[in-house]
């Protein structure tokens, strides 16, 4: 088996605002009826978190669950555990209308860190990044310049970005360029 490598292979850029490839992260797309008890308990077993409310994410120590749409969740697990997690999800959800897929290798995962992390995103996404409108615990699916992306904040100075791996280089350069020109001091 070949060695798995994340899209930018751990690259980092910037000093006051740091943009880095956050490495390999196991990601599982789970679609189904989010209100079903079977699905709720399967998600709890796989990630240790309950199904979040709309537009929210629960994430701690490499495991998490994010609300992506009314019938879709993104489960975050350690990279090596993704296949096993999919197998146990499929077993738990057998017979129900649902779908679990390991998409770890189809995604890129970045982190933007620094006091002006909000500004970096505000410049490239049509999202109100004011602390009153968006804060830790929320997940936003949107576009960043020309590519689809999702992001959340783990604290006031750290933003995690997920996008398709095929646009990983574009996204990294975009975030780095946005970070380079510094804060817009809008918040």
């Amino acid at each position: 088996m070949s060695e798995a490598v994340s899209v930018m292979n751990g690259a980092e850029r910037g000093t006051s605002i740091r943009v880095r490839d956050a490495g390999l992260q196991g990601m599982i797309t789970l679609r189904g009826d989010l209100s079903a008890a079977k699905l709720k308990s399967a998600v709890k077993a796989a990630t240790g978190h309950a199904v979040p409310k709309a537009r929210e994410i629960a994430f701690a120590d490499g495991k998490g669950v994010a609300w992506m749409s009314p019938d879709e969740l993104l489960l975050l697990v350690p990279y090596g555990e993704a296949d096993a997690a999919v197998a146990s999800l499929e077993a738990a959800l057998a017979g129900t209308h649902s779908l679990a897929v390991n998409v770890s290798d189809a995604r890129a995962f970045f982190a933007v860190e620094g006091a002006s992390a909000r500004d970096v995103i505000a410049k490239i996404a049509p999202v109100d990044m004011h602390p009153d409108s968006f804060g830790p615990g929320e997940l936003r699916r949107t576009r960043m310049a020309q590519a689809a992306a999702a992001f959340w904040m783990s604290d006031a100075e750290t933003i995690h970005v997920i996008c398709f791996r095929s646009v990983g280089q574009y996204m990294f350069d975009l975030l780095a360029t946005s970070a380079e020109t510094g804060a817009v001091e809008a918040f």
């Binding site: 709309a54 537009r55 749409s69 009314p70 049509p126 109100d128 936003r140 699916r141 949107t142 576009r143």
Partner: peptide, 12 residues
């Protein structure tokens, strides 16, 4: 109406 986001035209 599904996710409650105030989406800009470019997101739609």
């Amino acid at each position: 109406p599904y996710c409650g986001v105030h989406a800009d035209e470019t997101e739609l």
